[in-house]
Design a protein around this nucleic acid. Structure first.
Lengths: 146, 146
DNA sequence: CGGCGACTTGGACAGTGTCCAAAGCTGGAG
DNA sequence: CTCCAGCTTTGGACACTGTCCAAGTCGCCG
């Protein structure tokens, strides 16, 4: 499960380029939520000539193939989550954009058919918003309220 | 409930400027999900000199006051939802970014304490992803499969 | 009515992401 | 093994979203 991403790529008619391999490695080697820019930085550490455009398009491809999940949480940039398998939800700090995974089998309720608005649904994503411990602490300093 | 936003503003020490009034009107007059840019365009139709910076900061203030909800769905821009009262969730088309409201009392499950990661939670948001009817149709044309 | 200070302005700026023509490289055919 | 078609990458220009700031404006209180 750790390596065959490259095999799955070839099986679907994608060419195996050094760039795709490197991006795949970066994603496999880290369980956090990376922005496209972070992926580019880490990939460039191994393959310095890799361009931003390639990283963006590669991430889109991986996302379309279901190898990576694209997350649009509050922050400025989209994040890419290599942990696709155990489908999970997220907690987001509205102050600093920190992201945590919800590990347990928490899941969103199914939507009754009359609420579908003609759409074909394929996934439900829950985002728990709040303030992380670190941000809550700094707030106390700024707002002593004594 | 339709007008007193301006009252609530003054009560909290905010000044009543023409710009804030116009932005409030734009939001009140429409039940769809508007981007900051759309709000600016509509506001400018009434008050041509209003600047983008003002619209952005006003939307942030309204959002902080709970008069408007800021939505970070997949699209490039954040959307602002004037419908705060019946707290509701959303359906998003991953192709065209169309947004629909979930009207019914569907809601996300509470998160067990051991999953909080030290955060203080204040809201849970469910996003149902899928493909809207219009996009599904065009896909059929592009991919006849015969 | 006058002044304080919150508010707005407009333009510069930073970050994210897209697009495109040209050059490079993969993988299959011969 | 070599060659070629065409998929990929490159890099730079571009569009868009959102932030910041100094200067000027104007709402509100006295």
């Amino acid at each position: 499960m750790s390596a065959p991403l490259v095999d799955r790529l070839r099986d679907r008619g994608y060419r195996l380029t050094a760039q795709r391999r490197v991006v795949a490695e970066v994603l496999a080697g880290d369980n956090t939520h990376l922005s496209a820019d972070e992926v580019h930085t880490r990939a460039a550490a191994v393959l310095p000539e890799i361009s931003r455009a390639t990283v963006y398009s590669t991430l889109q491809q991986f996302s379309a193939l279901g190898e990576v999940r694209e997350l649009a949480l509050g922050g400025a940039a989209k994040l890419y989550d290599p942990n696709v398998e155990p489908r999970h939800h997220h907690l987001v700090c509205d102050r600093c954009d920190a992201v945590y995974d919800v590990a347990r089998g928490v899941d969103a309720p199914d939507l009754p058919a009359q609420e579908h608005h003609g759409m074909v649904l394929d996934a439900a994503e829950i985002i728990y918003h709040g303030v992380c411990a670190a941000c809550a602490d700094t707030a106390v300093i700024a707002d002593p309220e004594e």
